[in-house]
Design a binder for these strands. Sequence first.
DNA 1: TGTACATCAGTGAACGCGCGTTCACTGATGTAC
DNA 2: TGTACATCAGTGAACGCGCGTTCACTGATGTAC
Lengths: 189, 189
Amino acid sequence: MRMSREAMAQHHQEIVTAGARLLRERGIEGLSVADLMQAAGLTHGGFYRHFASKDAFVREAIAAAFASIEEMRNGWRGTPMEQLITCTEQYLSEMHVAQPGMGCPTAAFAGEMVRASEETQTVFMDGFLGITDWIAKRLEGDEKHRRERAAQIMTTMVGAVIAARASGNSEGGVQILEAARVQVRSMLA
Amino acid sequence: MRMSREAMAQHHQEIVTAGARLLRERGIEGLSVADLMQAAGLTHGGFYRHFASKDAFVREAIAAAFASIEEMRNGWRGTPMEQLITCTEQYLSEMHVAQPGMGCPTAAFAGEMVRASEETQTVFMDGFLGITDWIAKRLEGDEKHRRERAAQIMTTMVGAVIAARASGNSEGGVQILEAARVQVRSMLA
DNA sequence: TGTACATCAGTGAACGCGCGTTCACTGATGTAC
DNA sequence: TGTACATCAGTGAACGCGCGTTCACTGATGTAC
């Protein structure tokens, strides 16, 4: 039966919120429309009242994932450098590796972007550049140098988290993370 | 009709060779058995005379991909440090980003390993550790320090190539690569 | 060495399955009067 | 404000499609004598 506008808006948000988590956990190709709708407490048929296609949903969910970690970053207090250290330490923590569903969308989706639609790639790149800019703003030196260092820090962290996740629960993952922490700390010193 | 033992062995190698390339280009989930067999000049039905399952093929192809780049590494001449520089410069080249089919299996598969079978993860980790060891052997200092630096170099390069590929043909990808080259050069100096 | 026969690599149709997507239907919501 | 009706969010069956996998069949290969 027909839902009220508020009910529909709430359902929409529940789908996107659950989807942003499930997409990061299972990957774009690993999450089905039926599973997604079930996680939001609905049936699969209603999906197309909310999204034109699975790809449209993916774009919205990826944007929401980037927005939610941006919100997390904005909650941090302290000097720019203190915020940056909070960011890198959390990024390279065992918890971030173990819980991709609440983690960085860059680490979660980067490997799948080669096969994604052009529109989805654009959404992903916007989010990625947003994080890099956030880091660059908190570094010192001239514009060009800050951008370069931000890119270095970001790709180092992304590579370490992806590699650590790929290592499963083996000891290798822990060593990769620790090595990256040492490296990023020296880059911020 | 029945093929000779040599013909079958040759077909097997053709499947694995073509598969090692196609898997890196399209990803594990993005390559179908039918497409693979067609690329090897055969029909899909014969696949199961060569492999017990798609996953068994994936393991063999990933191992072959790691073996082929190991062979490439072993062809390089010069001092250990010169070999290392050749490795890192090639790894962080535009060509490597543009041609994943002939490139590093770590960068190609790392993002998909979370969803792969345990056996496939083991094959992947073996290859990954092989590269890290190769790098560590060519660094200076004590064992622990070399292992740490090798992990740092490797994850930095993997992160940069994955991020550059995710950036598509945008300018961002070029900048990520250049920033990583600067970083790795300073790590080797 | 020659022959008769069992083996089995490769073919292509077919299987079940899950996927993204569509659709007829339901009935509460929103709206026009 | 009350009523009559159009709208449409959500349901669940069904669609076509491609996937990994199976299987009866073919006929050259390998082998036993």
